[in-house]
Simulated scan of single mutants.
Amino acid sequence: MTGPAPVTVCRLRWEDPDAVALRTAMTGELRQRYADRPHDPIHLPPARVLAPGSVAWTGVAYTADATPVGHAALRWHGPDLELKRMYVVPAHRGRGIADQLLDAAREAAGRLGADRIVLQTGDRQPDAVRCYERAGYRPVPVFPPYDALPYSRCYALVVRSTPRRKAPVPA
């Protein structure tokens, strides 16, 4: 890995065109990685897919020239926040961008009051697993709805929540 890339992680709407383009690229890459398993789903069935309204935070990493190079999102999953659609453009991997996205997601989770971030990844994503473990995520049992995906691997990270400050009461 070279030194950290100078990126800025910006909070965006889930529907932002840069966020959508990065998620589309991620789906294409995953389909290639799992292409020899055409009968095994790589994503949940449409009826169980992520609803945009459930997303609590979406972050996109931008280079100094405003090129979007990474994506991460958080949605509520019971009392936890779930990391969703973590992705770095292949040409920008190995530069610390994933670490910066994970840091931004952890900070957002703390501000949102979560005690834990959970995530699901697949067995053919060892680079992602290494990144998550390096960031402190630890394996946990596969949790619903990912028990429907045969090659799921699930992880969790304890988050120190940041108490929200109460607004000062006027005297």
Rank of each mutant, 00 (worst) to 15 (best):
Y62I: 00
T24L: 13
P17Q: 05
D123I: 00
R85E: 12
P4T: 08
R11G: 00
V158T: 15
A73S: 15
A25N: 08
T2P: 12
G28V: 01
R153W: 02
L74N: 13
A72H: 06
V89Q: 09
E29V: 11
R31S: 04
P4Q: 12
T24G: 05
V7S: 08
Y137K: 06
A72L: 14
R23W: 10
R37L: 15
A91P: 04
A66Q: 09
P41W: 06
D80C: 09
A25V: 05
A109K: 05
R11P: 00
R130A: 13
Y151G: 14
A66W: 01
A109G: 09
R95S: 09
Y62L: 08
A5Y: 07
P163I: 06
A167G: 10
H71T: 03
Q32S: 07
K166F: 06
P90S: 05
A64S: 10
D36P: 04
P144R: 09
V158R: 15
H39K: 06
D115N: 13
P170S: 02
V140P: 07
P38A: 02
V20S: 12
V118I: 15
H39T: 11
V140M: 15
A51E: 12
L50D: 12
S54G: 12
M86D: 10
D99S: 15
R31A: 08
A114F: 03
L157W: 10
Q32F: 01
R134P: 09
V142H: 01
V88R: 04
A19V: 10
D65G: 00
C10E: 11
E82C: 13
R160F: 03
